[in-house]
Amino acid sequence: MPKAESKAGPLVSVHLMERMRKAALALVLPVALVWLWQLSGTNGAIAGGALPTPDRVWAAWKTWAFGTSTFGLNPYIGTWTQSLWFSAGRVVYGFAIAIAVGVPIGMIIGWSKLASAMVDPTIQWLRPVPITAWLPISIAIFGIRDFGAVFLITIGAFYPIVINTTQGTRDVDKNWIRAALMMGAGQRDVLIRVVLPAALPSIFTGLRIGLGIAWTAVIVSEMVAVKSGLGYVLWDAYYVGRMDIVIADMVSIGLMGFMSDFLIVSIEVWALRWRRLQSFDA
């Protein structure tokens, strides 16, 4: 035991240093790219003014995020947080519906051969239709309104969630189900207490892919069918020639996607901690 104790201290800091090293390595490429981008421009512009340099984008973002409007109705002063929340709110909303619909349907398709034969082909036929092709229908039904974006996000995130849940359900160890039945579990208990936790690793894979698509869907629909959010700002800024805002907007989208993925992965690590533990005798 004393041997293990003396090891514990250094081990923790080695672990921390390893993480910091990784973070530093991850930053090398973006920093280099931004630096090259800055160098390739003169007086804050590249290609005769077609694109701004990073310092201009940074300045535009600061005004967009923290500026206070003194006159007129400039949409790029102090509205960043608001736009962010509009988009993020829609993603959360649409993604939640996609989970609520996709996970149960995926489990039923994976569990029942009858359901699989009846539902799966339809899903596979609809799946190749890109979310952009749903835009006209979305606008026709919901108009230029919030729910149009939510609808598109739900559709986009639904497919990877349902497919991965189906696969996860089909791959559940047969003996786990037999064991549960042997212990007196009914179909409902088997599905909720055995199949769902057993399929969770696959479900999380579907959630991660679905969330990525959800961000694509929110930006696309805001560009066309909704008058707020990061996607709307992106297109609007392009129309009025504010490429600095366009780029700041793109970076914001990337950041949001990255952070929401990190959140999902954190939840996954927590929910699946039973898979990562080390054996006592290992």
Binding site: D173, N175, W176, R178, A179, A180, L181, M182, M183, G184, A185, G186, D189, R193, V194, P197, A198, W274, R275
Partner: peptide, 30 residues
């Protein structure tokens, strides 16, 4: 299958997300 016939599997086939205690009381619970 039913609880009047307790099966012990070759590889134990415990539910890996449940603790020892929760595995043991799974039957009575359901």
């Amino acid at each position: 299958p039913g609880p009047d016939r307790g099966v012990v599997f070759q590889e134990a086939s415990l539910l890996p997300w449940l603790t020892v205690w929760d595995n043991v009381v799974f039957g009575p619970k359901v």
